[in-house]
Nucleic acid binder design. Structure first.
Lengths: 243, 243
DNA sequence: CGCTTCATTGAAACGTTTCAACGCTAGTGG
DNA sequence: CCACTAGCGTTGAAACGTTTCAATGAAGCG
């Protein structure tokens, strides 16, 4: 099993972030990687683990989550192709949350040692990776606001706009629609409500013509209307490297 | 105005994080820095700013916050001496939130250029700073859980335990009590509730003998009882560098 | 002293949760 | 081919935690 283009989504991201040269690109391409195709709902690394490799999403989606009070779960982030959801494990050795596939996904595992080595040898790449983890944190901050201040319908609208914006960047959203292998329960765990209430909000979005949700697929029907339901400012995604 | 020991809290943190050598220490000590003593409630950098220096807390407290939907505010983090709350501005050039002093504080401003230079020249320091921003992110994640899944009383208990744990590390909490120049309104903005409800929760904590709050001072009266009100696991603070 | 800020209280309104039930769809095995 | 199962989506009604509004008290300060 070999995937010569496995690092392409990652390289595209890095290129969009900083000015990397040919040698940087080579360093990334030459990273050793083992591949794994996994089903949805598989826990790849869990709270308490001390992983010795990072996980690159080549295709598919992942989420990070934490168990709260034994029986509740909060989703912390959704990740897409090109992301390394557990990049932090390079320097924070014990994982404080779970990393789980959302749908069937193709993952590449890069051992810590060579990755750490690249980061030491190539400061530009270090910067790009560091920046990635900083954007991660910026998104966490926005999620604190989402869950802390907004009403349920505003939260869901915000989440949809975030997913839509990020997926457009990698060309995975076509005229408003994108695949997103989540159930309403998963959405509820991301926005800190109950699945029952998410269901009612989804119906609200549907009947207002703002957006639609079917199993595994979200459609932005009327972006302006969605935006009117929340206060989405994409600044926090830091999509442009100048920002 | 000069403070020869300004970098000491920072150095203590770095030393606790990675094995830094004499040269690393020198590099930190020689960083140019301008000092500023400011009142509480002062916005040091704001959303949309492009700061050209980072802000080191030498003495006092700061918070980071975001305005949601024009008239609500969510507090994202509290910072203490030795922290650089806007370290991220080194690589994310436009600020996506506000950084504000909590009480009267002494701040040191380190221009980006020399700081970036140190980080390029000294990979060990880069690692330590990077790790710091990763811990920041880990705390954000826990806050998402706090605000997303827990009831108000559990949230406040969790916040108090977090502050207490972090302040003990720098020796700023003595037999359960620590200074924390916040109002109940500020606490409410941190845990995503109303000040009225925080007041009721504070009374609950008081009458149960778990903790007390007076203007600017929090006292942990019975840590076990506080812990019984929430599910606080300090793993996410990554206090030990081995973790 | 009056002003301002913060803490406190009460009561009604509200958004969301909880519980329980039911329908739909796809997959499985008899 | 149908019965059965499992997971997900949907609905209704009552309960609950928190918000909102409005008012009062206490403390600090020019």
């Amino acid at each position: 099993m070999n995937y010569p283009h496995a690092t392409e989504p990652l390289l595209r991201r890095l290129r969009a972030t900083v000015a990397i040269d040919r040698e940087d690109e080579q360093a990334i391409r030459q990273l050793p990687m083992t591949f794994k195709r996994v089903n949805g709902g598989e826990t790849i690394v869990a709270t308490g683990d001390r992983p010795s490799a990072c996980c690159l999403i080549i295709d598919g989606f992942m989420m990070r989550s934490k168990v709260v009070d034994k029986d509740r779960r909060q989703i912390l982030a959704f990740h897409q192709p090109g992301d390394i959801p557990d990049l932090q494990s390079l320097y924070l050795h014990v994982l404080d949350h779970d990393v789980i596939t959302l749908g069937e996904s193709l993952l590449g595992f890069i051992p810590h040692a060579p990755l750490r080595d690249v980061v030491r040898r190539r400061p530009t790449l270090a910067e790009a990776f560091w920046r990635d983890t900083l954007i991660d944190a910026a998104i966490f901050r926005e999620w604190i606001c989402n869950v802390g201040q907004r009403q349920a319908s505003s939260r869901l609208a915000h989440l949809i706009l975030e997913l839509y914006t990020r997926l457009k960047v990698i060309g995975q959203a076509k005229n408003g629609a994108f695949n997103f292998p989540a159930t309403q329960t998963i959405l509820s765990e991301a926005i800190g409500t109950t699945p029952i209430h998410v269901n009612r909000v989804v119906q609200e979005l549907r009947s207002s013509g703002a957006a639609d949700f079917e199993r595994g697929k979200i459609t932005v029907l009327d972006q302006a209307r969605l935006e009117a339901m929340t206060d989405f400012d994409p600044l926090y995604l830091h999509l442009s490297p100048a920002l």
